[in-house]
């Protein structure tokens, strides 16, 4: 995910001149990250796909506004804004989308999970994964965004600041609150979790 695209500046230059093929090479490189970001923020595949598509259309149309620096952070910023737009839309008409809200569904995990371990462990791991996802979804949107950008997308603090449109201090503050929030949330469901998860710090 964090791998660099060879010759990225050349692709960006060509795309700016209207070379759609070059731009689509960038799309192919970043689409997993953008989709994953949207999925983690919105918690729902259809909306995440819409946001991802919208993000690349917007990026193409505003390529001339890209002023160097991390292209990934620039694209993620567009995606972030699109996610916030979607969240605002939901707030305006919550009833229609309530069924889609993250955490509610149990079987709607992310598409194409990577590893496939042994039978019994698989069930436990799936449960753990869902617990983690629920806890991430339970965070405030601002904190969730920073957490996802940092610990799922692997962006640097500076890239997160650029993507989220906030300063470094805010990034650090939100990230620590988000991590502490997930930690507390997981603590609460600890009985569900296998021994992998040793956070019983209270009683030592």
């Amino acid at each position: 995910m964090a791998s660099r695209l060879e010759n990225e500046p050349a692709f960006i230059q060509a795309a700016r001149r209207g070379d759609l093929e070059a731009f689509n090479a960038l799309v192919l490189h970043y689409q997993d990250g953008v989709y994953a970001l949207a999925y983690r923020i919105l918690g729902e595949p259809a909306a995440a796909a819409d946001v991802a598509q919208e993000t690349f259309i917007t990026a193409y149309r505003h390529l001339r506004d890209y002023r160097g620096g991390s292209f990934r952070a620039w694209v993620f910023r567009i995606a972030t804004n699109a996610c916030y737009d979607e969240l605002r839309r939901r707030k305006r008409r919550p009833a229609t989308l309530f069924g889609d809200m993250p955490g509610a569904e149990a079987d709607d995990g992310p598409p194409l999970p990577a590893d496939t371990p042994s039978p019994e462990q698989a069930a436990q791991q799936a449960e753990l994964r869902r617990a983690i996802e629920r806890c991430i979804q339970a965070l405030q949107a601002d904190q969730r965004l920073v957490l996802v950008l940092s610990d799922i997308e692997g962006l640097s603090y500076q890239e997160i600041a650029d993507s989220a449109g906030v300063n470094l201090g805010t990034v650090k503050s939100r990230l620590s609150r988000a991590r502490a929030g997930v930690r507390a949330c997981l603590q609460a469901v600890q009985e569900l979790l296998p021994a992998v998860y040793r956070l019983n710090s209270e009683r030592e």
């Binding site: 689509n24 799309v27 997993d32 989709y35 598509q53 598409p111 991430i136 930690r183």
Partner: peptide, 24 residues
């Protein structure tokens, strides 16, 4: 240590792939 474990759990979530291409 609790935070470290939490971050490791989050980072260990299976990566999500785009369900289709979003090329324009």
């Amino acid at each position: 240590e609790a935070l470290r474990a939490t971050v490791a759990l989050i980072r260990g979530l299976p990566p999500i792939k785009a369900p289709r291409d979003f090329t324009l």
